[in-house]
C-alpha cells in the first residue's frame, strides 16, 4: 500500500474548466475551446474514516470538484491522489481498484437509478461485474445489502417508479456499498428528500460510516445538514475554496466573511419572528474580474480586495481562510 495512511485522498491545486462546445471548425483548426473556470486551484485532504463537508451555493463548484475526484470531469491542472497514487494513473488494475474503493451517491433519487432495472438487477449487475461474490451468492448478497440500507427484502423486484424518493435513495446507497468502498462521495444525498425522510437517511449514513469505517466527502448546500454530518468542513465560493476547518472552527469561529454570511442566512426554528434588513439585489451573473471573487458582495471589502486575490491565511493547524483580513 503506497502513500501515507494519514491521508486517504489528497486534492492539490485542482483546476476544472468547462469548455464551451467547440465547432467542427475549431477542432479542425485546433483552436482551444473557450473555458469557464468551474474549480480554481482547490486543495483539500480527506483522512480515513473522516467526513468532510463541502458546502457552497449553486455555481460554487462543489459538485464539480466531487465529480472530478471520481474522474467524471477531466482535470485541467493540479493533482488528485488516492492513497498517495494519482487517480489519473491509467494502469487498468489501478483504475479497477479505484472503481471499487471510491463510490458516489447522487442527489436526484429519480434519475440516479436506471428506470428499466429492478433493485435486484441494479445491484446484481454491480456484484457480478466486479466479482464481489461468486455468481451463486449474488442473491444472498443482494438481500444482505437491502438489510444494510434498511429496505425490506420484498422491494427486491421493484422498479424504481414503484418506490418513494427515500427508498430509491437507499437503493442508490446500496449500489455504492455493493463494491465495499472505502471512500464515498455524496452529492447532495438528502437535498431532494422531505425532512422526515432526510433524517432517516442521515442516521443511516452515520450508522454505515461507523459500521464500515467509510470516509465521506459530503457535498451539500444545506449548512445544518453539513454541520450534523461533518468532522471538518470546506466552504466554496465561485470555484474557490474560501475556508477550511473543523466543524467547531467553521460554525463557531468562522473567519471568512462569506462563511459568516452563509451561517447568518440559515433559517432556524426559533420561536420568534426575525427582522432582516432589506438589501439590494446581488447579481450573481455578473463577472468577477480580478481580486477576491467575493468582494462584490462582501460587507467588509476594501480596494485591496478588488485588486488582489487573497492568499490562504493559516489560522490554526486545521483552520485556513482565503481572506485578506482572516487573521485580524
Amino acid at each position: 500500500m503506497a502513500g501515507n495512511e494519514s491521508s486517504l485522498l489528497t486534492v492539490r491545486d485542482v483546476d476544472v474548466r468547462f469548455a464551451k462546445a467547440r465547432t467542427l471548425a475549431d477542432i479542425v483548426l485546433r483552436r482551444p475551446a473557450a473555458a469557464v473556470h468551474a474549480v480554481a486551484s482547490a486543495s483539500l485532504e480527506l483522512r480515513p474514516r473522516e467526513t468532510l463537508g463541502l458546502v457552497g451555493e449553486s455555481g460554487s463548484g462543489k459538485t464539480t470538484l466531487g465529480r472530478a475526484i471520481l474522474q467524471l470531469h477531466p482535470v485541467a491542472g493540479g493533482e488528485i491522489r488516492y492513497r498517495g497514487r494519482s487517480v489519473h494513473d491509467p494502469m487498468p488494475d489501478w483504475q479497477r481498484r479505484l472503481r471499487r474503493e471510491m463510490q458516489m451517491v447522487f442527489q436526484d433519487p429519480y434519475s440516479s437509478l436506471n428506470p428499466r432495472l429492478t433493485v435486484t438487477q441494479t445491484l446484481g449487475e454491480v456484484l457480478r461485474f466486479h466479482r464481489i461474490v461468486p455468481d451463486a451468492g449474488v442473491a444472498a448478497e443482494v438481500a444482505r445489502l437491502l438489510d444494510v440500507v434498511g429496505l425490506p427484502r420484498s422491494m427486491a423486484d421493484r422498479l424504481p417508479r414503484a418506490m418513494s424518493g427515500g427508498q430509491r435513495q437507499r437503493v442508490g446507497l446500496a449500489r455504492a456499498l455493493a463494491v465495499r468502498p472505502t471512500l464515498l462521495v455524496l452529492d447532495e444525498p438528502v437535498a431532494a428528500l422531505d425532512v422526515s425522510i432526510q433524517a432517516q437517511i442521515l442516521n443511516l449514513l452515520s450508522d454505515l460510516r461507523a459500521e464500515f469505517g467509510l470516509a465521506m466527502l459530503f457535498v451539500a448546500h444545506d449548512l445544518s445538514v453539513v454541520r450534523h454530518v461533518s468532522d471538518r468542513v470546506a466552504v466554496m465560493y465561485r470555484g474557490r475554496l474560501v475556508e477550511l476547518g473543523t466543524r467547531e472552527e467553521i460554525f463557531l469561529r468562522p473567519a471568512h466573511p462569506y462563511t459568516r454570511m452563509l451561517l447568518a442566512a440559515v433559517p432556524q426554528i426559533v420561536a420568534r419572528k426575525r427582522v432582516r434588513p432589506v438589501q439590494a439585489a446581488t447579481d450573481m451573473n455578473a463577472a468577477v474580474v480580478g481580486g477576491c471573487p467575493f468582494a462584490p458582495r462582501c460587507p467588509q471589502a476594501v480596494d485591496r480586495c478588488r485588486e488582489q486575490v487573497p492568499a490562504t491565511a493559516v489560522l490554526s493547524e486545521t483552520h485556513s481562510a482565503a481572506c485578506h483580513f482572516a487573521a485580524t
Partner: peptide, 11 residues
C-alpha cells in the same frame, strides 16, 4: 442523468 454517471463510477 445520474444513473449513467453511476454506471461510469462503477467502472
Amino acid at each position: 442523468k445520474d444513473y449513467i454517471l453511476a454506471a461510469r463510477t462503477l467502472g
